[in-house]
Design a protein around this nucleic acid. Structure first.
Lengths: 198, 198
DNA sequence: CCTCGATTTTGAACGATGTTCATTTTTACG
DNA sequence: CGTAAAAATGAACATCGTTCAAAATCGAGG
């Protein structure tokens, strides 16, 4: 019944997720191969498919772990802030620093696509919600006339704007920019959003 | 020498790009298969590789065509605008409407990744530059103290912010949002940026 | 410690896909 | 028409994700 000891399959799951995390960190999501994951986890190729339905399932769990670390970092930034400007600034810069420090894993959060027609499972969608909540909480008092849903929508807009600046820059699709200038632009945008929130 | 008549290989190239464009429009970038492209273009599988080095080469050319249509749409929006607010608003809404109308092709512009270690060719990177120029031109007079490079960086920040709001929404990684609300949020952000440009 | 059924692990095999290239077909021109 | 260059072809190959029959391991009962 209430079995607290990790089973063999659970240990294998942990090793596979760790291996997938390392490989994405080193080579990016695009270079991820099932055989490399199994080898690094010290398991046979087929073992991966006794734990996950397919590679997408494993990637979702890797992303889940990345989101948890991101949540820890952003919670620290938020709780050590006072006032809207300070909170937005610290959240944005923490998000930037996390993206820079864990580039490939952070990119995988948004690069990954399920196969045609297959939706992202609800349990994983829900794991993204804290990002909105972190912004909605300090934002709500500044929008006293707005419903909770409107606040969430505006919070998502602000998150998306900062996220866009960082992701467009790190994707390198435009002319490159130094990390110092990127940080400056993120600061400018964060303060601009905070100043116009009400 | 100055041969103006399209050769057979050039006609094949046009058909392959058209086929790739249709297939991405219908099924998205992820479902694109070399055999489907060749079949729809009325060519043999190998023909694709007499025109392009690989699938990435064809995708770059599909994206090139999408960028040209996007440029046409945004140029129209820009030239029919007066003042910074009006220009930002029209550019942002035109960008949103293009993304909604050509969802899969627009997504392919930013979803596509070259193989590990292979950079996006310069000729294709240069095709993205107009997006920055469209914002930098009306922005420059409002930043008289800034260098041309600083204006370009700020223009990219503004583009990225609007792009982020649209792409995060269309990716559907967070709770869904209606097109009407998305348009409202894009408007809010565009006006917010225009108002704080100087 | 042995037995044997259940469970877990294995990796060869399969199907799908991008890519190559020897062969065939078409074109261009005297 | 002849023929050499160019283009087109599709079978074959290499590499993936995925499956599954077989082997290895485990565990309870004698």
């Amino acid at each position: 019944m209430g079995d607290k000891r990790p089973t063999k399959k659970e240990e294998l799951k942990v090793r596979l997720i760790a291996a997938g995390t390392e490989l994405i960190r080193e080579q990016g999501l695009k270079g991820l191969r099932a055989r490399d994951i199994a080898e690094r986890a010290g398991a046979a190729l087929g073992g991966l498919y006794t734990v996950f339905d397919d590679l997408d399932g494993l990637i979702l769990h890797v992303n889940s772990g990345t989101l948890k670390r991101l949540e820890t970092a952003l919670n620290a930034a938020s709780s050590s802030s006072a006032g809207l400007e300070d909170t937005f600034l610290n959240l944005s810069l923490s998000y930037l620093h996390f993206a820079l420090a864990e580039r490939n894993l952070w990119s995988a959060l948004f690069e990954h696509r399920m196969p045609e027609g297959v939706p992202v499972p609800d349990w994983h969608l829900a794991e993204h919600a804290f990002l909105i909540g972190l912004i909605a909480a300090p934002l709500a008092p500044h929008l006293p006339a707005a419903s909770a849903e409107d606040v969430a929508i505006r919070a998502r807009t602000f998150f998306s704007a900062v996220h866009g600046v960082i992701s467009v820059s790190l994707e390198g699709r435009f002319v490159g920019i130094t990390p110092e200038l990127l940080e400056r632009e993120v600061k400018v945008l964060a303060l601009l959003l905070a100043h116009n929130a009400s």
